[in-house]
Design a protein around this nucleic acid. Structure first.
Length: 193
DNA sequence: TGCACGATAATCT
DNA sequence: GATTATCGTGCAA
């Protein structure tokens, strides 16, 4: 496995979301390497009312406006962090939410509970498992940092598409992508197969 | 398996 | 003061 270069990332947010399914997410923490195979993502587009960047740039969503491949981390519901990859061109304001991951390396280092298939099943759990903190916000997945995206460790299966989960605006758009049948995918059963 | 519900805090209006 | 890209628990079937 090697690091993905920015030039390899599709510029279009929906294409990037689809591209990232099957790729590897790596956190080289002081305690050791944690990595996982991305199995579920969602795209948030320019002009999309559900996108945090929809109402313009603020201090919180600044990272969404960086060139594609940067890290956007935010805190929600008083309890959970979400990990996103910025998308589109610099200044656009779009991103891809990483929703679920199949653990590969460093399972013992990951925070959370439950079976290995459940520890990173859902965006809040994924961020908790990978020990994502606000300090990563604004960082670069394509730079030399400890948090990065790698090539696929094994071929990706069939990719399914569905509506996004947990949103109220533009809820009908099919911008969620996942590996069909993978037990680590979150959401109701009808949105996993 | 599939719902309903509350916790909890940063951000923005 | 409203809103929120979630999670875990609890209960019914």
């Amino acid at each position: 496995m090697r690091r993905l270069r920015r030039a390899e990332l599709p510029e279009d947010p929906a294409e990037l979301a689809r591209f990232l399914v099957g790729k590897t997410l790596v956190h080289d923490s002081p305690a050791g390497r944690m990595s996982g195979r991305i199995v579920e993502t969602e795209a948030y587009l320019v002009g999309d009312p559900a996108c945090h960047a929809y109402r313009g740039e603020t201090k919180r969503n600044h990272a969404l406006f960086l060139e594609r491949g940067h890290v956007y981390v935010y805190f929600i519901y008083g309890a959970h962090y979400m990990l996103n990859v910025s998308a589109d061109r610099a200044g656009a304001g779009a991103g891809v939410l990483l929703r679920a991951m199949e653990p590969l390396e460093g399972l013992a280092l990951m925070r959370g509970s439950g079976k290995p298939t459940e520890i990173a099943c859902g965006p809040g759990r994924l961020a908790a498992a990978m020990q994502i903190t606000p300090q990563f916000d604004g960082g670069d997945f394509c730079g030399p940092g400890p948090l990065w995206l790698g090539t696929a460790e094994r071929p990706v299966g069939e990719i399914g598409k569905s509506v996004r989960i947990g949103i109220t605006k533009a809820a009908h758009l099919e911008l969620r992508f996942y590996e069909r049948g993978n037990p680590c995918v979150s959401g109701p059963a009808r949105l996993r197969n």
